[in-house]
Amino acid sequence: MAQFNSWLTQAAANALVGASLLVQRVPKPISPRAHAYFDLLVFPAIMGLAAWMWQRNRRAAMLIVGHGLLEGTTAAITNFPPPGPFPLISFRTHVGIGLASPPLFLIVSSLVPGIPWADRKIVLLFGTLPILVNGLSDTSKPR
Rank of each mutant, 00 (worst) to 15 (best):
T73Y: 07
F105D: 00
A12E: 00
L22G: 13
F126A: 12
F126H: 12
G66K: 02
V133T: 04
L70E: 06
G135H: 01
F105E: 06
R59A: 13
L88V: 09
L22T: 05
N5F: 08
F91Y: 09
H67Q: 13
T93P: 01
D39K: 12
P85R: 11
S6Q: 11
I115S: 03
T73R: 00
T78L: 01
G135C: 03
P85K: 11
A76H: 11
A36T: 12
I122G: 04
P130H: 05
G68L: 08
V42H: 11
L125P: 03
M53L: 10
G135N: 05
D138W: 00
R56M: 08
V23C: 02
S109W: 01
A51D: 13
S110R: 08
L125N: 08
L69E: 04
P87Q: 13
A50S: 13
A118M: 07
W7Q: 09
F80C: 06
R120E: 02
V65Q: 09
V108T: 02
R56P: 01
I107N: 00
G48W: 08
V123E: 00
N134M: 07
R33Y: 07
I30R: 00
L16A: 15
D138C: 02
S20K: 06
R25N: 11
D39W: 10
L63W: 02
R59I: 07
T139W: 01
V112G: 02
M47C: 10
I107D: 00
P81S: 14
D119Y: 12
G68P: 02
I89G: 04
A11C: 10
A15R: 00
A50P: 07
D138L: 05
V108S: 00
N134E: 10
R92G: 04
L69W: 04
G84K: 12
H67P: 01
P102E: 05
M1P: 03
V23G: 02
G114F: 06
F43S: 15
G72P: 08
P32N: 07
F43C: 14
L63K: 03
K28M: 06
Q3G: 07
M1R: 06
F80H: 12
N79V: 12
T93M: 10
L40V: 12
L49R: 04
I122M: 07
I30G: 00
G48R: 02
N14S: 14
Q10C: 10
L125E: 03
M53V: 05
P142S: 11
R25I: 09
P130A: 06
L132Q: 10
R120N: 05
N134H: 11
S137T: 15
T93G: 03
W117Y: 09
P81Y: 06
L104E: 03
A2M: 10
P142E: 14
K121M: 05
T128C: 06
D39V: 10
P142T: 12
P87I: 08
V95D: 06
N134K: 00
I97N: 05
P102T: 01
D138T: 00
T139K: 00
F126R: 06
R33L: 05
F4Q: 13
N134V: 02
A45W: 14
P81I: 09
M47W: 11
G66M: 03
A100R: 07
F91K: 05
T128N: 01
P113R: 06
R56I: 04
P102A: 10
T74V: 14
T74W: 05
G48L: 13
A36I: 06
L70Y: 09
G114I: 04
F86A: 11
K121C: 07
K121R: 14
I122H: 04
L129F: 15
L63D: 02
S110C: 04
L41F: 15
R25V: 11
